[in-house]
């Protein structure tokens, strides 16, 4: 592996690996460290006269393992506090380790952006305020003059709609492929 190859992989996968890590690790610095470790391993093992598919799967698998190990360790360190949060995160990390692919791993973020754009205005605004503005649900409620409960319901509905839109698109692509085969 030359340095340029490494740079290319780093520039391409570091942002999405970090995004993926942040699914389970709230602390940004910690997440950065975990991703860094994976790239060190990648560098040292010289995994990479292999093709990009194998590289990607190495990177993601290592990151998932690192996260899960970190969470398990945290559970021991923090004996009582945040146990439920940690267990939920652990559940999530195991889910992706067992072969489920996250939208991030599928590099489907662009698709989500398009899907968000196609939502109704009010849903779009709620998603914008919470994701881009990083407002709390209560702050959104105040801003839009609606009850917090309604904001929460809207967030859930908006995400459910996105889920449908994204999965139906995938299905659409599959159907098209099948038709092509015929």
């Amino acid at each position: 592996m030359t340095m340029t190859d490494f740079d290319t992989y780093f520039l391409k996968y570091h942002p999405i690996l970090l995004l993926f890590t942040r699914k389970f690790i709230e602390d940004e610095q910690q997440a950065l460290d975990l991703v860094q470790e994976v790239f060190i391993k990648f560098w040292e093992k010289g995994v990479v006269s292999q093709n990009e598919g194998q590289v990607k799967s190495f990177l993601f698998t290592s990151v998932k393992n690192n996260c899960l190990n970190y969470l398990k360790h945290q559970k021991v360190v923090r004996k009582f506090e945040q146990q439920f949060a940690l267990r939920l995160k652990e559940l999530e990390a195991s889910y992706y380790l067992s072969g489920e692919k996250s939208l991030i791993e599928q590099e489907a973020m662009k698709k989500i952006e398009v899907a968000i754009d196609s939502l109704g205005d009010i849903y779009k605004e709620v998603i914008f305020l919470s994701r881009i503005e990083e407002l709390k649900n209560s702050e959104i409620a105040e801003k839009l003059h609606i009850p917090v409960r309604t904001v929460e319901t809207m967030i859930f509905r908006a995400l459910s709609l996105l889920k449908e839109k994204i999965s139906s698109k995938t299905i659409l692509i599959l159907i098209n492929l099948n038709q092509l085969k015929k």
Partner: peptide
């Protein structure tokens, strides 16, 4: 649902 949330 969380996956969509995280990816956005």
């Amino acid at each position: 649902i969380k996956d969509i949330w995280d990816a956005s």
